[in-house]
Design a protein around this nucleic acid. Structure first.
Lengths: 243, 243
DNA sequence: CGCTTTTTTGAAGATGGTCAATGGGTGTGG
DNA sequence: CCACACCCATTGACCATCTTCAAAAAAGCG
């Protein structure tokens, strides 16, 4: 089985049951692989994509571009995620998907995916579930950015990213590659850079996390989860216990 | 055709093409209708619903409950919306759905819906699209609450609600029933009540909108849309031009 | 090495939050 | 019918947080 197919199956199984026939169906999907450098856009706001992106490695982000030129990052994605699965049934992109660090992406033609659904509805439901979990992540981001103080907000984001990475098996022990600048972190959390920096220092001082040079290090998961008021149920993943 | 079926078909057609067979399939869905008073919860965080809610009349909202007891409203829904369509493929609710004003809701068993998908995939795709538009609304809320100053933020929410209501045909001319208190408005926009009140006054002073006693009145749509930096494309609806 | 970009720090200023008090409206019970 | 209670809206004053601005230090990069 091709890497692309393995990655997709593995990811869908983090939240859905797949029968052997579903897996067979996945292996019939065609695709092309492309590589991206940091800050490259994969799909732009306004585009009408004909293929769905699947992250094979690296980190990608989605963002809205505001009139002022500022970006609002909406979510971040790692191996196995399909950051633009919504493009399957929504013609025009309302946001942009970009590579945060170096990233390898497989593109699967929409037609192939839709045919797979018709042949194996449960496979369609699994991908549908994927988009629904996506929505749950957005909801949490609304709450996070609207109702939580800055240190809680940042801790929550770190928890989410580390938890999801653990579920995908890409978090080595207590470390995670997270190729973000403080500016980008601020554009995700709705804070000014100065605040990002100072908040980061406060969190560091609690001994729960460290984030520097694009690497997130978890020093005390329980403490971090507490600071971030993190309850992973909204991610709807099968049980994982980071650390 | 029953009211429930008509409402659903009408709403799906705001964004999707339905063939006659799809409509036939819709009429086979069974349902029960229930009424709710303001502030009643329809489905709670943690529930595992067995039926999907369809709004027949009134306004419902979705919210996260925070540790402090504060709510964060995530979105509001009107006739035709299925505020918990996600429950179809996600077992446990990660938020609560409640009636904002008096509301009439039809509940359609999940089994019926899934069978309909299998019989008519395009119908499934239409409902899938519905959930994807939902996600687009959440994304916009992230940006709205994270990156826009309070008056823009409030104007944007008013634009969205009025625009969607126009598309559904429930906005009478330039007025819309919006049974929200200032507290709830604040819990949606992430502002303190005092700020909500003062922001409302500022907007009123621009002559673009008025919101009082649960009624939203649009006085100058273009001006409001400009203040709110509102671009309706993210709603993915067929063309509508309010006013 | 010089250049750019990012991180760090400081200080001033503004926006919005908190707190507290007032008033209007509605519903209930005496 | 009035008194009271309660909820919601309104307003003012004060204060905290975060933003903005500016500048220095540190880190990549040709």
């Amino acid at each position: 089985m091709e890497l692309t197919h393995r990655v997709l199956v593995r990811n869908l199984r983090e939240h859905s049951q797949l029968a052997d026939q579903d897996v067979d169906q996945v292996t019939k999907l065609s695709f092309v692989v492309r590589e991206y450098e940091p800050n490259d856009d994969l799909i732009r706001q306004g585009d009408r994509p004909k293929a769905a992106a699947l992250v094979l490695s690296g980190t990608v982000g989605r963002y809205h571009l505001l009139g002022s030129g500022r970006r609002q990052y909406l979510s971040f994605h790692i191996v196995g995620d399909m950051p633009d699965a919504q493009g399957l049934f929504i013609d025009q992109m309302d946001h942009t998907v970009c590579a945060m660090g170096h990233a390898v992406i497989a593109f699967i033609p929409h037609g192939d995916v839709v045919n797979a659904f018709k042949a194996r509805p449960p496979l369609g439901f699994a991908i549908w579930r994927e988009t629904l979990i996506d929505a749950a992540i957005f909801r949490e981001a609304i709450t996070n950015n609207s109702a939580r103080p800055v240190h809680t907000r940042m801790a929550h984001l770190f928890c989410e990213l580390f938890y999801r990475a653990s579920a995908s098996g890409v978090a080595a022990q207590n470390r995670l590659d997270l190729p973000l600048s403080l500016i980008q972190l601020g554009e995700a959390l709705g804070m000014a850079i100065a605040t990002v920096n100072r908040t980061l220092q406060r969190l560091r001082a609690t001994g729960s996390v460290d984030f520097r040079d694009g690497v997130l290090t978890i020093r005390n998961w329980d403490r971090l989860a507490k600071i971030g008021q993190f309850d992973p149920r909204y991610l709807h993943l099968k049980k994982v216990s980071p650390l």
